[in-house]
């Protein structure tokens, strides 16, 4: 699954991946792919505009850190980001429940 569908939910996916702990761009992509059992294949370049924007919104913070001997930009969920994630997760669950009701009724 890729393209527009994922683009509209990219923020939730990124925040969820970071909820498990700080990570750099590449590890976030891998986390999303692994947790979706390979279903979600993001256009990898679209991750960075999203990360930079989440940082400007103060939902994540970032700093250069050494990871496996290399300097990387590592992103971390902020308290605001955690609250936003919880809200978005609630919204998604509600949407999912309503969608299931509609689909099951057909």
């Amino acid at each position: 699954m890729r393209g527009e569908v994922l683009k509209n939910h990219l923020e939730l996916l990124v925040l969820t991946a970071l909820a498990a702990g700080p990570g750099h761009g590449y590890s976030i992509i891998r986390a999303i792919r692994d947790r979706s059992d390979g279903e979600f294949e993001l256009l990898e370049g679209s991750l960075y505009p999203a990360l930079h924007r989440l940082e400007r919104e103060r939902l994540v913070s970032s700093s250069w850190s050494k990871v496996a001997g290399r300097k990387r930009r590592v992103y971390e969920l902020s308290p605001n980001g955690r609250a936003t994630l919880e809200q978005q997760e609630r919204d998604w669950r509600r949407f999912e429940r309503a969608m299931n009701l509609v689909l099951d009724g057909t």
Partner: peptide
């Protein structure tokens, strides 16, 4: 190829920057 066309990535940045 997996990262995406340079023009597409730049466009995503332009959209995100414009929103902010």
């Amino acid at each position: 190829a997996q990262f995406g066309a340079a023009a597409t990535v730049a466009a995503r940045f332009a959209e995100a920057t414009a929103s902010t």
